[in-house]
Amino acid sequence: MQEDAKLGPEAHYQAQLNQGRFLIQRCSDCARHVFYPRVICPHCGGAALQWVEAGGAGMVYSTTTVRRKAEAGGDYDVSLIDLDEGVRMMSRVEGIAPTEVKIGMRVRARVIDQKGAGLVVFFAEDGK
């Protein structure tokens, strides 16, 4: 954590994810949440961005199934998720077939390890 404090927001975000923590920023000046992590608030231009733990709950804003040959790993989901804090991020919904991911679906975040790095993915809230 001492080392992390010296990192820029992008690297700090990833370092926290690597430890299983999903943090986003909140602007102390305009009280809005910010994603992706920055040094300046894109809403008000202020620099008073604080780290807060993401609640993890959100909703699928849009979704596509990327078609890929089975031998390369098969089809997969790419979704845009609106977190309840009011920020949007690209991610994927796991645990169900990619074509079963629907706009409006309630989802919950989980930090997984992908190729040695922490990554936020989502699962359908009803536990499927």
Binding site: V66, Y76, V78, M90
Partner: peptide
């Protein structure tokens, strides 16, 4: 695009 690339949008 560090906040999109891990999800491999085509």
């Amino acid at each position: 695009e560090p906040f999109q690339a891990p999800y491999q949008p085509f």
